[in-house]
Design a protein around this nucleic acid. Structure first.
Lengths: 218, 218
DNA sequence: TAAATGCATATTGTATCCAATATGAAATCA
DNA sequence: TGATTTCATATTGGATACAATATGCATTTA
């Protein structure tokens, strides 16, 4: 066999294609809080029936990205500042623990990949890419932990606050501080100091939350 | 209007009825790890079409209670000891934080309700009820925190390890220890000592995990 | 006879159709 | 006129029908 084969049972179903597209659109902010998602309209846009659309909406609801009401349909669900703040607290609890567990398991490859994302993040002039690169940087480090349940929950939490994350980076000193702090975290990881990496991560998250709160509620 | 009214839009849809029933069956252990869930069979059992069944299975998949493969269907997904252990670690991180936040917000009513569950748990001779009462006791205390995202995630984590939880209570000293520790936690809450309640909760969870690990792999 | 192939059946994924409910405007009534 | 009712339309929930894929057994072939 000379052909390049892969597991076709993992090929995307209509449901997952629609789900991924809608998820991206909500996270990127193309679909805005409160916006009504009509099954029929989406079905036509993707040229599928409403069945896979409904299943995609159901998944989005489980992820907390839309709220649905019987016979009324799905609307994009934003977060109040209080709700977002709770999720930042959650992250501040979880992420330090994950990185502490990850540090002793980080290979050279992981560190190099993270450094690449870190530098790409620092260099990129296009704010549209910041959210994604920021997330990839952290994820690369976290994945080394091997804590798959923690990561699943964390990714869900990040999905929900992504618009706030991007808003925070757009603040005047958002990028500068993020870059400084990313380098610090990376350094601690490279030095094998899990405790310091954890503490810096905690400060990184709490700092972001505090600057958001100052900016949005006075 | 003298009639007792309620919001009918919250009435159960076929999907949620099927979901709740399947979730209970999996958690209670009536449906066992690896068991295949046929859409058609379930649809006939509930006298509905396969559509709501599919949506229920999708929700179960998001909750991690079943795994599905395209064109192959859903099977009840159990956890390896390692996977369960990771979730216990997760709980040991999350639950102390939640109860610490909850203690200063606990009303007398909450404490009384928790005490009721605690005593019911201690008295109940039927092992079938232990899992449920145990969970209600802790939940009552946790809900006072008002941390809805934390609770959502926690409930999902508990669903996944519920069979292990029940197994742990069935160990020789499982119930005795659980009762002792519950009373300690309740006392700390009543005394307004969030720090102690948190530490006891952490020990409660880690202890349960350790005894499981000794029993199953030692 | 053992492996490969073809075929029948079972099961899931999706499309189409019907039923239940929501929504808003026209009609009615005080 | 302003509130209420009726009714037409839009939208979602669920049932039925069809298509795609999996699975196991009979058949063939070397």
């Amino acid at each position: 066999m000379k052909i390049q084969a892969f597991d076709i049972s993992r090929a995307a179903s209509a449901t997952t294609i629609v789900f991924d597209a809608l998820r991206q659109a909500i996270i990127k902010g193309d679909l805005k809080e409160g916006e009504h998602l009509r099954q029929d309209e989406i079905a036509r846009a993707f040229n599928v029936s409403r069945i896979p659309v409904r299943e995609a909406l159901l998944k989005l609801e489980q992820h907390g990205l839309v709220r649905t009401q019987r016979y009324k349909g799905a609307v994009v669900s934003g977060l109040s500042l209080d709700e977002a703040s709770e999720i930042f607290d959650f992250r501040a609890l979880l992420e330090p623990e994950v990185i502490r567990h990850a540090v002793p398991r980080m290979t050279q490859t992981v560190l190099e990949e993270a450094r690449t994302f870190c530098e790409a993040f620092a260099r990129d002039e296009n704010p549209m890419n910041w959210g994604d690169l920021n997330r990839r940087f952290h994820s690369t480090l976290y994945e080394a932990s091997g804590l798959s349940f923690h990561m699943e929950v964390l990714n869900n939490a990040l999905d929900r606050v992504e618009p706030y994350l991007r808003a925070q980076l757009l603040l005047s000193d958002g990028m500068d501080r993020a870059n400084r702090e990313h380098r610090g975290i990376l350094e601690a990881c490279a030095a094998g100091d899990g405790e310091r990496a954890a503490e810096l991560t905690r400060a990184h998250i709490q700092g972001a939350r505090n600057s958001l709160q100052r900016r949005w509620q006075g």
